[in-house]
């Protein structure tokens, strides 16, 4: 008898979330990731590139600085560059508003967002600095100013969901609900947001992504459990697509910033960082992501190509992709 795969019956599915004025669809999965032999997977994970609202300066990893040479410091041209590189969406992070750093105000955050929206016509994520009060100040203003643009706004936590949530609701934006790597806390926050009146198809779950080798496993397992709750138990408080802010987690690690001359066993720095990002992206795809926020354009290119083959089938023809130089070790 021919082999038959043991299949699972799913009773729920992930909500479809249209984002941006252009309505790119996120989510919609009715099976575990890439298990299309037992359920429909209408939308592949979407890929965003992260940009800053200021010149990152010294703290920015050298391979990223090289990839975005000439556009750092201007969010508009930077966003344009990201779209040229093939990003489905742009994630503007309001780094300049960090109270521990420049502490820029709401007006500056609004201006940076305006520049990005003027420059590109893909959906835009506007991400704060995960400071409960500062994010209320900046994101509330952005919600109001860009009414009806269906921006993706975050992070919203149980500490500031009321203020930012109310603004997002009033002005028609989609929210990113961030909870600390825990299924129950994710559910609680979703319930709080829905109680405010936010529709289930206006929420994304941010499980607080850890970096590869720096806690990715916690997020990975929480995502698998979220998927199980949403798809097998049909828990309608958890059927939101997942967003992972992984690029910045990768590029801030020590290993992504070490020079090959100093540590030859880590190999070429650019390739290493890109492949760390690719490896985490693929892991999170396997765990059920719907939206990956990446940093390096080469990572995006590889991940995009791979997701297409992984989902649709076909052979790798792989021309024009990263060529890893082999590092000799004395």
């Amino acid at each position: 008898m021919a082999f038959q795969v043991n299949t699972v019956k799913y009773s729920g599915k992930i909500n479809v979330i249209p984002v941006g004025a252009q309505k790119i669809n996120l989510g919609g999965q009715a099976a575990f990731p890439f298990y299309d032999f037992e359920g429909a997977l209408p939308n592949k994970p979407k890929l965003a590139l992260q940009i800053w609202d200021m010149d990152p300066g010294e703290s920015y990893a050298a391979p990223l600085a090289a990839a975005y040479e000439g556009v750092l410091g201007d969010p508009g041209t930077w966003a344009k560059k990201a779209v040229e590189y093939g990003a489905d969406m742009v994630c503007l992070t309001l780094k300049s508003t960090d109270p521990n750093d420049k502490n820029a105000g709401a007006a500056e955050a609004v201006a940076a967002t305006q520049k990005v929206l003027d420059a590109v016509d893909v959906p835009v994520i506007v991400f704060g600095v995960d400071n409960k009060d500062k994010d209320v100040e900046t994101l509330s203003a952005i919600c109001e100013k860009f009414a009806g643009k269906n921006l993706v706004i975050g992070p919203i936590t149980d500490k500031n969901y009321k203020q930012i949530g109310a603004q997002a609701l009033a002005y028609g934006h989609t929210v990113i609900a961030r909870s600390p790597i825990d299924v129950n806390l994710a559910k609680q926050l979703n319930i709080l947001l829905m109680d405010l009146g936010i529709k289930p198809d206006k929420i994304l779950i941010d499980p607080n992504t850890g970096g590869l080798g720096y806690g990715m496993e916690y997020c990975y397992s929480v995502m698998e459990r979220l998927q199980a709750a949403a798809l097998l138990q049909a828990d309608d408080k958890l059927q939101q697509p997942i967003i992972n802010m992984l690029g910045e987690e990768i590029w801030k690690t020590k290993e992504a910033n070490q020079k090959v001359e100093d540590v030859p066993t880590l190999g070429d720095q650019n390739s290493r960082g890109v492949l760390m990002e690719v490896t985490e992206a693929v892991s999170l795809c396997a765990a059920g992501t719907s939206l990956l926020v990446l940093s390096h354009p080469e990572s995006l290119k590889i991940v995009r190509y791979y997701i297409d083959l992984w989902a649709d089938g076909g052979e790798i023809k792989g021309d024009g992709y990263l060529n890893v130089p082999i590092t000799p070790i004395a």
Binding site: L212, M216, L266, G267, S271, M276, T279, E280
Partner: peptide, 10 residues
């Protein structure tokens, strides 16, 4: 290293 280090971390 550029190839195996990411996979070893994963």
């Amino acid at each position: 290293g550029a190839v195996v280090f990411p996979l070893l971390l994963q």
